[in-house]
Amino acid sequence: MVNENDAEASFVPMSSAPDKWLRKEHLPHIWCPGCGIGTILRQVIEQFTKLGWKNDDVVFVTGIGCTGRASGYVNAQTLHTIHGRALPTATGIKMARPDMHVVAMLGDGDGVGIGGNHFIHAAKRNIGVTAIVVNNRIYGMTGGQVSPTTPQGSKSTTTPYGNVEPSMDVCKLALGAGATFVARVHTANPVYVGQIIGRALQHDGFAVVEVLSQCPTYFGRFNGMPDPVQMLQWFKENTFMAKSPEDEKEGKIPIGVFKDDKTTPELSKSYRNLWEA
């Protein structure tokens, strides 16, 4: 606590982000102890602060699931849409209002499961939306079922014998579909998460940041890492800095910025060329 002998005014918070960007009256949030979504959301609003954006210039869109609830806590223009449909909604918003900063925060199931087709086409269009994909590799809200990104062999409530299917790589998918900014980070290094999200937010085009995140309650508990601390350590030990999601190193997961193309035109702006013609 602040030392009461000191004049209180002499100690100032090192960030004022919470006051401006958080709907504090709705805290504590609904996420489980140690869940990574809160950490990622902290990094998102830190970047909003750093960029000096105004609350009513940001449209923050989510779908359904644990990550879907993030929109309720951000003091911006927020939409909690239906499952998998945050990106087409964000597309409509951005097309109507290119001056708005449109950010979509998706889960792995929301983003590349039920919403997979929208994800591909948002990338293909290069619509100016920042897609932050919180990949906790499981369906958390519904109780820990297998997701498209659950690793092969991992357990969930619907893969009691281990996941038979291979998992999906969000970054490879984004690159294949034409996203112009693609990066992968993990919650064990939150400052790096913030840096990369900051770059993605400033990108003029469809930007994907996949954030590997911990779900200690389900993924961790079913797979020998019930403590969030264990999960963060696993991220540190099983990732490496890379230039491409295709890079290989002892079976570890590549991390880093894989694409940053500033030349492809953004859709909401290029469409407006038709207005002039």
Partner: peptide
């Protein structure tokens, strides 16, 4: 260093700096 603030998933931590 604010690492606690950066990682806290619950928005519970504030770090203060003396002016």
């Amino acid at each position: 260093c604010t690492q606690c603030y950066q990682i806290c998933p619950d928005f519970a931590i504030t770090v203060y700096k003396k002016e």
